[in-house]
Nucleic acid binder design. Structure first.
Lengths: 355, 355
DNA sequence: CTGTTAGCGCCTTCAG
DNA sequence: CTGAAGGCGCTAACAG
């Protein structure tokens, strides 16, 4: 339409970015593009050159082109097998995974496991889509069967946030035992003795480890555990509601002074039940969770919980699996790594000194 | 350690995938690789050829190499400027955005706006990192200043989930007005007349549109709106708690029979307040929200709300912005598109007939 | 409509 | 340790 030369200056966008390549940097630094590549990738290069290149990179605002890099070095495709697409920390997971992926040109394929009769089919699908490695988030990370299927497909698997890493597959995790122990201590230090613990899904390894951590801390403090204070739960909000009612719909004198739920969803539900019964939190009841999912800071009062650095863990997972894949490509023996991330106790508003 | 040649057969992984390229497909189909490329990308190819190629693709399980494609066609880098990294639908957003990005080799750069004194700085940072286009999620999508900064940088911007799309920048949105109107009608059809409305952050365009939708539906049904039933809120759980108390801590006869909160977080808070006061939901009070964030299906009772297809919207946003960037690269005039997605009323447990 | 040619930006490989 | 050559898999651009 508008093929004339008259360009309405004021309605025109100004600058236009032109792509900066290794060659531009190389020219400016007076070296070969290979040297630039090496500097950027952290390979050995003598100091004087490295400095000049760095300067040129900064001056030109050079950003490596991940796609081109991947095209040359062989693209890794990593599959993520999601069983629960609305899992509360999905956001953090993807954030971390894709950040790492963007850095090294890894391609990520997300496949919802629901809709498949069996994990087997989902894995097969991923393999057909060209996955070179597969990340198994909970609860699949604990499924020996799923792990076996991936193994049988001839590609490396990585268990994400399992508490039971297997020796022939990689894993990224936190120490659930220590996390629960730390939280229990926190409660004890606040003066609580009558502490209830709400279990998680027994088919999920962290649930067990967390209970052990709770028991350990109680034992160390020589606080006996009343069996009636150990409540079954399933990690769902719904099961937390049930646990809360069981624990709190009783004579005030019979109530525990603190509840440690093995995840945030249940802790949130218990808090809602407490508030519903007119029990003040943390005034009359302290509530603690585990995971630090978004709900923990969304609810009121904000939840004291154990922060799992999901995003960082996801990024590490992609990195490790990527290495495994490259290893395998070059014919080396399988690379298996277990990476333990550090958790952090987030002391927020839902726990306080015993009344 | 284990450098011997003895390989324990049973502990060895089997198959290994070899990469399938356009050429393999071309050879099998008896055509040129260009034709394969065209078929895969949906360009015009005569039927007989297209069929043969398709067959070869399936037989070989060919999957295009996104990285290589991007390397050749020019990689798009799209920046996302997050102001609220724990926003509840971040997960859905990233899921959709990265899915699309994975399909067309777009590189996504996420930058938290917090930590920057001004949106300007964040945008500048993104541009320095090589962004060719920028997506502005709420509340930045409504900031004329942010839009201007991007414009000044010479690259296209896209407002995500604004209710006020601007004419010189693209946008992906739902019709907030119609969504609120639909929800209000739902409440009216259930027999409610005394309906309270909790406003959202007035600095955020959807808040206004939603209120208008509410008013429109009430007017159509000739139900007068009592000013005292219009409560200010800020889209936060905390502000929902306040609104809930204001509305519900009164004589039962004075309570509305339904509350329509302009987002889910506030609706969840109001539900918690109601339950806390012993008011049954939906028995004595219906509560409705807007957005369908994870909390809506997590809470109890599950929330009736308006579903925004965030994931689909994000994917569309990346697609549209990608086109704009390609347009600009090839020197055509700016491409601006406004895409309106369809919302869906999710009738769940928190609303019911008037008592 | 289809095929040919020529690289995208980078890095593997192999000389020097 | 550094540079030169070559090509990863794919698709613009042009020819036929």
């Amino acid at each position: 339409m508008n093929e004339t030369d008259e360009k309405p200056k004021d309605d025109q966008q100004p600058t236009r970015r032109s792509t900066v390549t290794v060659h531009d940097v190389a020219r400016l630094a007076g070296v070969s593009s290979m040297t630039v590549s090496r500097v950027v990738n952290g390979t050995k290069v003598r100091e004087p050159l490295r400095v000049k290149v760095q300067a040129a990179v900064e001056e030109l605002n050079y950003v490596p082109n991940v796609a081109a890099r991947a095209a040359r070095s062989g693209t890794n495709r990593i599959g993520v097998l999601f069983s629960n697409p609305r899992s509360s920390n999905l956001g953090d997971f993807l954030m971390g995974a894709f950040q790492q992926a963007g850095t090294d040109g890894t391609q990520i394929i997300v496949e919802p496991a629901a809709g498949h009769r069996h994990a087997v089919d989902a894995v097969r699908k991923l393999v057909e889509m060209g996955a070179d490695g597969i990340i198994l988030p909970p609860p699949l990370c604990d499924s020996l069967e799923a792990l076996d299927v991936v193994w049988a497909a001839g590609i490396p698997a990585l268990s994400f946030a399992t508490a039971d890493p297997r020796s022939h597959s990689s894993a990224v995790l936190i120490d659930d035992f220590e996390g629960a122990r730390a939280m229990t201590r926190h409660l004890i230090e606040l003066g609580h003795r009558d502490i209830a613990f709400v279990r998680g899904d027994p088919g999920h390894s962290p649930a067990l480890r967390r209970e052990e951590g709770f028991r350990a801390a109680m034992a160390e403090a020589r606080v006996p555990i009343d069996r009636a204070r150990l409540i079954d739960g399933m990690f769902t909000y719904r099961s937390g509601l049930d646990a809360g009612r069981q624990l709190l719909e009783v004579d005030p004198a019979e109530r525990p002074s603190a509840v440690f739920a093995s995840n945030d969803d249940m802790a949130a539900a218990i808090t809602a039940v407490a508030l519903g019964l007119g029990i003040s939190v943390p005034g009359e009841l302290s509530v603690a969770g585990f995971d630090d999912t978004p709900i923990a800071s969304l609810m009121w009062p904000p939840l004291t919980t154990i922060h799992q650095p999901i995003s960082e863990m996801a990024s590490k997972a992609v990195e490790i699996l990527g290495e495994s894949v490259r290893h395998r490509r070059s014919g080396k023996e399988p690379l298996v790594r277990h990476h333990v991330c550090t958790f952090k106790l987030m002391h927020r508003g839902s726990t306080g000194p015993r009344a």
